[in-house]
Deep mutational scan, measured.
Amino acid sequence: TTEYTFTDDEEARRAIEELKKRGLTFRYEKHGTTWRVRVD
């Protein structure tokens, strides 16, 4: 499991789109302004 942290909404959304394109399994949660994206 790899975890990424983003504080920029645009950056987080781009990363999420990219992961979807690659067909990877991931989860994300947003805490205030911080996004945590975990890739299995």
Rank of each mutant, 00 (worst) to 15 (best):
T25W: 13
L24R: 05
F26R: 01
K30R: 10
R22T: 06
E10D: 12
V37I: 15
W35F: 04
T1I: 14
T1R: 09
E29M: 09
Y4W: 13
E29C: 14
Y28K: 03
K20P: 00
E18K: 07
T7S: 08
T5L: 13
F6D: 00
H31N: 12
D9K: 08
K21S: 09
G32H: 03
K30A: 03
K21G: 06
L19N: 01
F26T: 03
R22K: 10
R27A: 11
E18P: 00
V39Y: 03
T7H: 12
A12H: 02
D40V: 14
T2Y: 14
A12C: 12
E11G: 06
R14A: 11
R36Y: 15
V37T: 00
F26K: 00
T25K: 13
H31F: 12
T33Y: 07
K20H: 07
T33F: 09
E29F: 13
R36E: 05
E3L: 13
L19D: 00
T2L: 13
L19F: 14
R36A: 05
R27S: 15
E17D: 10
T25E: 06
I16L: 07
T5F: 14
G23N: 05
F6K: 00
G23H: 05
T1H: 12
K30N: 04
L19M: 07
R22Q: 11
D8S: 14
D9F: 13
K21C: 12
E17S: 10
K21L: 09
R22E: 05
E18S: 10
K30Q: 06
E18T: 09
Y28I: 15
T5Q: 07
T2G: 05
Y4K: 02
T25N: 12
D8E: 05
Y28H: 03
L24D: 03
E17M: 11
T34H: 07
A12V: 06
W35S: 03
W35N: 02
G23A: 03
T33N: 14
D40R: 10
K20D: 04
L24V: 12
T25H: 13
D9A: 12
K20Q: 10
T33R: 08
V37A: 00
D8K: 05
R22A: 11
R27D: 07
E10L: 10
V39P: 02
L19R: 01
T5S: 06
T7R: 06
